[in-house]
Computed example of a mutant assay.
Amino acid sequence: MKVTRVKSDSGTYDVYVGEQLRYKIESLLPKSYSSVMIITDDLVARHYLEDVRNSIIQYDRVYTSIINHGESSKSIDTFYRLHSDAIDYGLDRKSLIIALGGGVVGDLAGFVAATYMRGIDFVQMPTTILAHDSSVGGKVAINHQKGKNLIGNFFSPAAVVYDVDTIHSLSAQEFRSGYAEIVKEALIADRHFFDELMQTGLSRLTNAEIASHINKGIAIKAEVVESDEKEAGIRKHLNFGHTFGHALEALQGYSGIAHGEAVAIGMLFALQVSEAVFSVQLPFDKLYSWLETNSYPLQLPEMDLQHIINTMKLDKKTEGTTIQMVLLKSIAHPVTVEVSDADLKNHLELFKKKLSTRL
């Protein structure tokens, strides 16, 4: 088991990564609690809910709330229902919420914990590769119909417990989605790690390789979060590929394309814009080939350019009405740059042509 300690302004917590950890939750909790509420989704519940329940047998009061899987559950209605469940279960300020699932469950359950009785402890138990990123750093949120994660807070978990065995129940799409975030972390922080990933075939990975990649990604995320917990500066760099990626997700109603798949396309777009802005050569072709080899969707949907620009303006990095994109001067050298609407439209038109000629 690998343990990474994250030190932020709002508290210090440990991230545990290893095998069979879902059977050891009790020993990994930072303190005792009056009661426990496990929030999970209908798919994860079938596989791992009983394992987790059985691992906290010291508690007489253990409750569960199951949501529907998928991004649509990060809604105000589900958020309100979970608060109602917590009240009905009699949770108090010494209770614990366990977020058992992927990024949707983690973001949603974390926001419930952050707002229930002005904040109670929660533990992240990610069950997807994608959630290695979202479970570390204390960002919790729900979506608004006009944009992703627009309603939320910064609220650090009491611990993160990552049982890598749980990823074996992932679909191929979710596996791809998670690895896009690992690639993002490598691009903004570690050239050698990026080169290593570009030589990796997702269908041939061993448990040890996956754990190694996850730990490297978490280490990058932890270092950034420790320097800038509330995204006043360099934490914005973690959004590389997300400005366009989030807009793609919103355009498709948060269905069809997975978050990481949208971010993968967003990273290609950010690389293209970076090359134009800084007159540099970046690994656009290398990344495109790797994504194509590993079956990422690379075809853009039909879209009105002004509409996609307006959607991108809902990105949290936007200041006033000017879009700020995270770009690369080189691998591991990210910067935040303002991009005008006119320039963005030109970049989007070129990007559409560039992708269409490769299909």
Rank of each mutant, 00 (worst) to 15 (best):
T4D: 04
S10H: 14
L28C: 01
V36R: 03
M37D: 00
T40M: 09
D42Q: 15
D51H: 07
Q58H: 13
E71K: 11
Y80P: 00
R81Y: 12
D92H: 05
D92Q: 03
K94F: 09
V112Y: 11
A113F: 01
T115W: 01
I120N: 05
S135D: 12
A141L: 03
K148R: 05
F155N: 07
F155Y: 15
S156Y: 05
D163W: 02
S169G: 04
E174F: 10
Y179H: 15
F194T: 04
F194A: 06
M198W: 05
G201I: 02
N207F: 12
A208L: 12
I220E: 01
S227P: 01
H237T: 13
T243N: 04
I257Q: 08
A258M: 03
L268K: 08
A270F: 06
L271Q: 08
S274W: 14
E275W: 06
V277G: 00
V277K: 15
F278I: 10
F278N: 12
V280M: 09
Y288F: 15
L291Y: 15
T293I: 02
Y296R: 00
L305T: 14
T311C: 13
K316F: 04
K316L: 09
T318M: 04
G320P: 09
M325W: 03
V326L: 12
V337T: 14
H347E: 13
L348T: 05
F351N: 07
